[in-house]
Design a protein around this nucleic acid. Structure first.
Lengths: 197, 197, 197, 197
DNA sequence: AATGAATGAGTATTCATTCAT
DNA sequence: GATGAATGAATACTCATTCAT
């Protein structure tokens, strides 16, 4: 049988991530993606509906992965709330730093897409965020996290911070050492800026 | 001659902010901006070099204003470091919530522009950020802020958080009451998520 | 009385000749002509109907001058036909080499204009050419010029040759010394290329 | 895939020659060329870089053809210098009269292009002219042509004359019978206007 | 499935000309 | 007459998408 090499679809997505990261979605040319993926222009439309669809699939891949990882984490009984919170932060760091181009694409394009066509956006995003909020809510219920925090606001606060930081790292990694960033994000989000003796 | 009435330039900028906020920079049509500004297409090019230039002027206006405000604040002797920090946060909130469309434009377009053509970006941005960092550094020196915080990382942490929150508010203000946001940002950034006591 | 300085009209024409010669008619900008003439854009339209009109006036000036000069020449009784012919050639050389920019404009634009809108073209051109043909015809009648020559064809032959040569000189005068050109044109048009004896 | 039928490129060039000849390069609209070529606007840009490029290809085609023909002629041992000279003139006539529209395009646009962007102009032109000059120089060396003739000036003299004549013929063929033109050009350029007995 | 030539709707920008002052 | 800000029609070129092969 003609072994479905199964890489065309993946090759296209990888190429698209690179091109989107480098040029931005609007200046990214389908022809360039095809060239980088070593695939004909026509083939792109065999695997993806259109240019938008490629972008949506990138979001799906990332947030789907994060959602599944977080799902396993949330259910664990052997971890404290703070452990879970720290693990969640590590998970986000790990995912985006594995592929810096993806981090750039998310940082640059997600906001616009979410606002313009939220109905087409991957549901994994909301699901992932929902799990994150659950961790915070449980922490509050258990008295670990401050009950005066508005969970919805906290979510945007943290994800916004992340977006900027990971994008900054992706652009110039040497100015944003991963470990320092991890520690600072964990510390800042848990203890804040003030010097509590 | 027909003398410059002096508001065309402003009208165009206001119209552009609205259109950029609603459609995004790439889908914003010059013809639509002209129509909204009650001005001919040609007049836009009397006052602005091109589409990009309009966007740059929007950034300049916002960050220029913030820079000048923060400059006055930084020098004051009658305020504690924490007062200054809180005032800075209020200042950012005030600026962006005065014109929600501008908030959206900044949230959506600044990242891309900064990365693609940083040399053309308004220097006020870096100057504003520099003043903000100075407040934090002074606070650390005085023992008010935690010396283990990486100031550069903190800056991106805070501004990233802001960007997401203000954009969320601009899109659906009822889900993000301004006062709650203000308090939460101040609290979270100073004390963090954990329940101390 | 407000002394009619009378130079605006002339200044505009001089500026236009320079700009047309340098950029070509289509790439010549009215704004540039106005700037070079030290005149407002609006003033150009006080003295000239439109861009085309400026060009027509340039042709008129040149061919009008040549026509009047040739008219005086043709009637003279003290000159042989060959003297008249040589004088005509000198006259053309003198006119165009006085202002090399004009030479370039004529060389580049006249053909197109003549073909596109012959009805608006200065009648001086046809009148000048008519006088030139008269000299040739008289020379033939007197047995000085070869009766087998088609006068109409000769006219285009000679003027075409002129156009190229004067344009070449205008572009790089050092490669086309005026005196050599004069002598060669007179000799070639009278004796041809062959070595008689 | 839809395979290149192989005539689109030619169809576009033919259409462009017609439109350029009729309207002039600047007033020629790409849309009109596309319509005349029975091709979409986009297809023009598949085969040609831009509007300029189409014009350059027209020059290339004409001067390339003339160069190759003249090359064969120059080397022949069975012809006298005068035979070669006459054959060269016939060759030019034949080339341009085969396609009168091309003659008009060359007559109107080449000068401007040569002056503005000589570096992009087809090298065949200089090569063709070089061969022509070689014929004249050899003729001079053999005592056939007059040694006092400046070859460079003669070249412009002759080509300029040609340009005007062929353009005149293209515009109104009945006023310029081909055979009469041929004979007159040969005669004039060899023997001149004077009646040598 | 794979290809890439063909398509044509869509748009930023230019610039000759006008006209209120 | 003089000015130059205002105008908007006009157009080359792009590029996502299609579809005959």
């Amino acid at each position: 049988m003609r072994k479905k090499e199964g890489n065309k679809e993946v090759d296209i997505l990888s190429a698209a991530i690179k091109v989107f990261a480098e040029c931005g979605f609007f200046d990214a040319k389908i022809a360039k993606i095809a060239e980088l993926a070593n695939v004909s222009i026509g083939s792109i439309y065999v695997y993806y509906e259109n240019k938008d669809d490629i972008l949506f699939k990138i979001f799906e891949q990332i947030w789907g992965g994060l959602y599944h990882n977080l799902e396993s984490l949330v259910g664990r009984k052997d971890l404290t709330m703070v452990d879970k919170y720290d693990a969640m932060i590590d998970m986000i760091f790990d995912t985006f730093t594995e592929n810096s181009a993806t981090a750039i694409v998310i940082a640059h394009e997600q906001q616009r897409i979410l606002m313009r066509t939220p109905e087409k956006f991957t549901p994994y995003y909301e699901q992932f965020v929902g799990l994150g909020e659950r961790i915070v809510r449980e922490g509050i219920k258990k008295g670990i996290f401050n009950p005066n925090i508005n969970v919805n606001i906290f979510r945007h606060f943290l994800l916004g911070a992340f977006r900027d930081l990971i994008n900054s790292w992706a652009v110039s990694p040497k100015d944003f050492p991963l470990n320092t960033m991890r520690q600072n994000v964990k510390f800042l989000s848990k203890y804040g800026l003030l010097n509590h003796k």
